[in-house]
């Protein structure tokens, strides 16, 4: 029997980018996962935790655990939210008997595809120059790819999967993994710096010839897309799951 996957769709994807949830679902089902979307889920609590409002997080962490604990795996198309669950729930759920297990079975979408599901190659075509934005939490908290600061062999499963699609050409950036400047409430609290960071990322992609800008996190893309659309740049933004789904 296929493992039962609980699909964790972060609140902002649910409300603003339903197509990303749909694409993730389609891909997972295409490869034979038995996916369920528990409807009572809301938010993992990251915005509150990152603002220091930890009182508000505890109940949300417990809710999350109750909702998802019965699944074989929890999969989410956002590295940042996965990192919240795996690395920042300790202070709220540290002694909960089910938390350790939840940590182990929660995966970022590409991580689940390339890891437990063993997908190494995608069929289909996507004839575009693709810019891969390395979202910081996926990179430096979940270690889904090597970061430029750390010495060691380079790796990155999502990149390999993307490269396996016929027609995909990944662009080469001046700064391969600099932060886009979204940072949750930082985007508003430090608006000036946040926007300059975003502009610089977009510019780097523009110079590199990126046609489609993608990432494992929609939040970074929302921020950069906001800048791209305001400045009317010829770059299209797609979550990595949307690219995969287009290849089906």
């Amino acid at each position: 029997m296929a493992p039962q996957v609980g699909l964790f769709i972060p609140c902002y994807i649910d409300q603003l980018y339903p197509q990303v949830g749909i694409a993730s679902l389609k891909i997972l089902e295409h490869f034979g996962a038995d996916v369920e979307y528990p409807e009572s889920q809301t938010c993992c609590g990251q915005p509150m935790a990152n603002t220091g409002c930890t009182n508000e997080v505890g109940p949300l962490a417990l809710r999350f655990l109750e909702i998802f604990k019965s699944y074989d795996a929890v999969v989410c198309p956002s590295g940042s939210c996965v990192s919240m669950v795996k690395h920042h729930y300790d202070e709220y759920l540290g002694d909960h008997p089910d938390y350790k297990r939840l940590k182990e079975k929660t995966f970022e979408f590409c991580e689940y595809l390339t890891g437990p599901m063993g997908i190494k190659k995608l069929d289909g075509q996507f004839p575009h120059k693709v810019g891969l934005h390395q979202s910081c939490h996926g990179l430096r908290e979940l270690r889904l790819a090597s970061s430029s600061e750390v010495v060691g062999e380079p790796f990155g499963n999502a990149r390999e999967l993307l490269e396996s699609i016929e027609g995909v050409e990944i662009t080469t950036l001046q700064r391969p993994d600099e932060c886009c400047g979204f940072g949750g409430t930082f985007a508003v609290a430090e608006e000036a710096v946040s926007c300059m960071m975003g502009e610089d990322r977009v510019y780097d992609h523009e110079q590199a010839g990126t046609e489609v800008l993608t990432a494992l996190d929609m939040s970074c893309l929302m921020h950069m897309d906001g800048i791209i659309r305001r400045q009317k740049k010829p770059i299209r933004v797609m979550h990595i799951a949307e690219i995969f789904a287009e290849c089906l």
Partner: peptide, 28 residues
């Protein structure tokens, strides 16, 4: 709106993911 000073807001979709699920996904 500090977000909108230099950035567009995302377009609001017609339906949320959960609404789509209710209509299109056969299981719960």
């Amino acid at each position: 709106n500090a977000w909108g000073k230099q950035r567009e807001l995302p377009d609001i979709p017609k339906q949320s993911f959960r609404e789509w699920m209710k209509k299109n996904h056969d299981r719960k």
